[in-house]
Simulated assay, not measured.
Amino acid sequence: MEIINTIGETLKNIRLSLGLTQSQVCNNIMSQSNYSKVEKGEIDISFSKMVELLSRLDMSVDEFMYIKNDYKKHTHSQISKLRNLRFNDTELITKYKNKLEQKENLTTRELEIVTIYDALILIGEKNAFKAAKEKIKPIWERLEKHDNWYLYDIQIINNIIYLFPVDTAVSIGQLAVNQLEKYKELRGVNNLSISIQMNLLLLLIENGRYEAALDEVDRLIPSCISKNLTMHLAVCYVRKGLLMELLSQTGSEEWYDNGYKLLEIMQNDKLKKELQKEVSQYKKEKHQQ
């Protein structure tokens, strides 16, 4: 049975475990009498006051929500799963979708995530880009009305960017990366920025924009190195080798070898096979032209 404590109960449990009085926690933030009512669930608390209280307890909002949810991942962990999904990993996407659909009374955001899972499955299993685009149309109509995107919105964009014409996708992707700047102090945001650029790289390759893709991968490689994103770096090495070969440039084998060796060190045989299949597919298409 899932146990979800109230905010007040969780605050009280944390306070008592730290050996603090109510006055020590709420001093100069709110009155002790009002704080007592918060712990009892008699009154609500504003977000700004909540952040101040958590700062006093030396605790992040994420950690608090994790404790509140009985030391289980909170709902937003479903959103974080969108970060590293690949549309060809339909087995994992289906697993996430089925697990989420087991919940009762899905929120609006969770319903959007289910829709995105459906769209990614359509692409991965049937290559049905047109049907997938129709699926996510209401989500994009919501997003394009706003100039300011939140982190959740940007994670969504990262997963639907394949469904736009390449020039539109590049513009949207660049805008999303720029908007991530305001979140740069948050953990994991750098990975999301790289993920968006990796998706744009693949989109450029799929549309035959090999020179633009090579420029993109040359920008990505130093970023992956500086951020210690070894798996992303391995993918970049392999795709750089592919692009050099597609452009009839010499030296592609060295980049292939570097990428595959990194994946062997990480024992990521699955991704290595996926990339080998990807390389073989693009080379075959090139020879058929």
Results as ranks from 00 to 15, higher is better:
M266H: 14
E9P: 10
M65Y: 15
M30V: 13
N258M: 08
L214F: 12
I205E: 00
K126W: 11
Q155V: 10
S226F: 07
N69A: 05
L203F: 02
E2I: 15
I123T: 10
E181P: 04
S46N: 08
E211L: 15
L220Q: 01
D118K: 11
D89L: 10
S55N: 08
V166W: 02
Y183R: 03
K240F: 08
V166P: 05
D218F: 09
L57W: 14
K40D: 02
K12D: 01
I14D: 01
V238S: 02
N105T: 10
E285C: 06
Q24A: 08
L214H: 09
N127P: 10
N158F: 10
M50L: 14
I205A: 00
Y282Q: 12
I3T: 14
A176C: 05
K49R: 13
I29Y: 07
H232W: 12
I67C: 01
Q155N: 08
N191C: 04
Y260S: 05
A213P: 13
G259H: 03
K273T: 09
L243D: 09
E211N: 14
H76I: 15
N84E: 04
E52W: 04
L100K: 09
L85T: 12
K103T: 13
W140T: 05
D118H: 09
M59I: 13
M30P: 11
V38H: 01
N207T: 14
K286P: 06
Q32P: 11
Q249L: 13
D147H: 14
I121H: 03
S171W: 02
K135N: 08
E101S: 12
S46Q: 10
C26L: 01
D89R: 15
L20W: 12
K240S: 05
K270T: 15
R86W: 10
D218M: 11
N148C: 04
T168A: 02
Y150E: 03
N105L: 02
L85N: 02
T107S: 11
Q155G: 04
M65W: 14
Q174M: 05
Q22C: 08
E42F: 11
L16C: 00
K137H: 09
N27H: 11
M1H: 13
L262M: 14
L100F: 08
I116Q: 00
L82Q: 01
M1K: 11
K12C: 03
I45F: 01
E125H: 07
Y35S: 04
G208Y: 11
L242T: 13
E185G: 01
F129H: 03
E9C: 05
L192F: 13
A119D: 06
H76F: 10
K133P: 09
I79M: 05
Q174G: 05
Y117S: 05
S226T: 14
R209N: 07
K261Y: 14
A169P: 07
L151K: 01
E144I: 15
E285F: 13
P138K: 05
S248C: 09
L233T: 12
T21A: 03
H287K: 10
S223L: 10
K49V: 13
E185K: 09
Q179P: 09
S23E: 11
V114I: 15
S195F: 04
G41R: 13
D269P: 00
N88L: 06
G19I: 06
E52P: 03
N105R: 03
L262I: 15
